[in-house]
Design a protein around this nucleic acid. Sequence first.
RNA 1: GGAGAGAUGGCCGAGCUGGCUGAAGGCGCUCGCCUGCUAAGCGAGUAUGUGGUUAAAGCUGCAUCGAGGGUUCGAAUCCCUCUCUCUCCGCCA
Length: 437
Amino acid sequence: MGKNISAQTIGIVMLEIKYVRQNLSEVQKSLENRGETADLETFTNADGDRRAILLEIEDLRHRRNIVSDEIAKIKKQGKNADGLVSEMREVSAKIKELDNSLAENEKKVNEILIALPNLPHSSVPVGKNSSDNRVEKQVGKCPDFDFTPLPHWTLGENLKILDFERAAKITGARFPLYMGAGARLERALISFMLDIHTTEHGYKEVLPPFIVNRNSMTGTGQLPKFEEDLFKLEGWDYFMIPTAEVPVTNIHRDEILEEAMFPIMYTAYTPCFRSEAGSYGKDTRGLIRQHQFNKVELVKFSTPEDSYDELEKLLHDAETILKRLDLAYQVVLLCSGDLGFSAAKTYDIEIWMPAQNVYREISSCSNFESFQARRANIRVRRKGKKRTELVHTLNGSGLAVGRTVAAILENYQQADGSVVIPEALRPYMGNMERITP
RNA sequence: GGAGAGAUGGCCGAGCUGGCUGAAGGCGCUCGCCUGCUAAGCGAGUAUGUGGUUAAAGCUGCAUCGAGGGUUCGAAUCCCUCUCUCUCCGCCA
């Protein structure tokens, strides 16, 4: 039957091909706002050729289908159909030939489409980089110290709860080793976050695989563009997850969901693995930028009309954790140039880190609209409607656990070098009130 | 790791000596009828993607029976490769 056509293969793209075709200049402009470029001219040409060829192929196939039936009938009557057979032999050869050039054009089209980032939502400010992000609000009070606050890595080492030296021996740079109360603190935070999201916010807890296949990575947009950011298993086409977003969003890959199920809300704790390619020399100390870190993730599947409401709720759910821990933070709306590849709109939550005197990202909450759903083929069937629709997917950290530990250490440190445990967390720490050397 | 079996529509399950089979049958579901209520019964409909046409319903082309490739005028059916599932043995947390 020759090549599998376009429908399926072309379907695996981020932006809808039809939309790109019909809104070239708008797509172009969105790309510029993101600081991206794409060869849309090549796209237009290849796409045009592709469609023309496809039309011809379908025509030929139509004819072959009909004639093949005739041949069957003729043969059934015991008559000779050699003429038609040899004619169809040629038709089939022609189809095969066209299939090849179709595949070529398809490949070109696909390569361009799959590398196109999502279009920013209209509420996203246009800007070049993180300096153009908009601070939406600041919450909580940054602590005043009557001494010079220490960075968390110094605190952690002094308290013997973080041991970067031995971690480097065991593995290498950028891996964490928590000891004693530090390990307990990490585990307490995971439980604390999961409990709040499941019992108060209505998320269903899932524990997914930490290693996924190529299709899953492509579905959420990590592949094919960002393979160098991932750890890949040697000898396997498997990857360590950089975030729970990947396995959890892919739970419903290639599924048609019922409208009544929405919104679907999952929360998952997983470790996350990132190669951090290109970040040499950045955040070399402490828990901020590790190859392995823990995160509690929030993932939502929404109907298109509700997804932006769901984004606000998601942001709220992530903020709740920081409020309970009584940590100061700000919410930042990312500008077009700082937006991630798959996202249409993103809020970052940034936590106050007193030792460095800066806010650091601790959560990133995004609406991907139909970008991931198109790649991962996740749809909804409306009540009474025949056609299916792509869902919208969202996710956000709720929260990055290692960075939360870092924030607690720095914000709750005392003059004597001890660290007070936030009250909300004490039940999870065996009622421990303070970590002392 | 060794030996075997399998992968079909929302589900179960035929077809697999190649040709009106996009796919029997059953279940489920939807709509209609009927019944005083419930249950049962009767009738019709019920995959996905993509293109054409239409105001729309609809009609219609092409593709899809795990994935990819091959043979053939024609493949769910034959051949090859891969993936996954199941059973038995081995090994192991």
